[in-house]
Design a protein around this nucleic acid. Sequence first.
DNA 1: TATAAATAGGATAAATTTATCCGAAATAAA
DNA 2: TTTATTTCGGATAAATTTATCCTATTTATA
Lengths: 144, 144
Amino acid sequence: MFSKACEYGIRASIFIAKNSFEGKLVSPKEISEEINSPKAFTAKILQALVRNDLIKSVKGAHGGFVIDKDAIATIKLTQIVEAIDGDKIYSGCGLGLEICDENHPCPVHDKFKVIRDELKHMLETTNLEELALGIKSGASFLKI
Amino acid sequence: MFSKACEYGIRASIFIAKNSFEGKLVSPKEISEEINSPKAFTAKILQALVRNDLIKSVKGAHGGFVIDKDAIATIKLTQIVEAIDGDKIYSGCGLGLEICDENHPCPVHDKFKVIRDELKHMLETTNLEELALGIKSGASFLKI
DNA sequence: TATAAATAGGATAAATTTATCCGAAATAAA
DNA sequence: TTTATTTCGGATAAATTTATCCTATTTATA
């Protein structure tokens, strides 16, 4: 569904959000340990999220990554996915045709459209806050 | 969503089904031209489908690939997907956790489950016949 | 101002997926 | 039985994704 990079990016964002509630910065080291991901690769993905203004980095000593408290509830999963994987998950044809639309559909175009629209809706309505709260309460997990 | 191999596999199967209606064998060359895919790579995928008893190969001169006429309506997309991509599309965690189930869910487990179940249902209820008929009637396309 | 700690980013390596090539095996037909 | 045609399957190559390493840059603090 998503690339590894995107999976790490979402998990990292949730972990950062959870800590940002308490005003706590987290480092790539801490993040990769808590979400069980390769450190340097995760750091690269974090850079991409910073460039897309989804998370903030504080450089230098005592730096780390953080998300603005009031942004946590407004950042939707779709923004993270688009920042890392682009929009292929929405626009791409299920069977890989370059052109696949109402006028020139692949054999499963309509059937896929239903599912993709639902996925899209889910990503557009799920925000970081609810996911971070699930982690905080112990209802869900970010590793293993 | 699916690997390239799986996309080619589905498109190839639909093309073979369409020709099998008329009792016509098709070669990897013809298939790859009609579905716009790399020939040798497509041939490898066809072998996997043969090993899984989804399509039949006729070796030697005037050989090619064919699907039993009465099997066309019974072969579901899920069988092709599983033969090529395995069951990761059903069992895998949306965020890449090794363990992700009701007892140990990732933060988006429930939300993903809804979508994956719908995808699963679609793949389990869509058969090759209806897809091949769409191609035959010109309602849908296998390339470009 | 010097130092230590932290992110940024380029270069490179490893792993996986995608794709190609070629000879072996099978088979219909001459 | 020979030949031409076709699938089978192993070896290899190319491309992409994933992952690592190292240095530069930034910045808080002593």
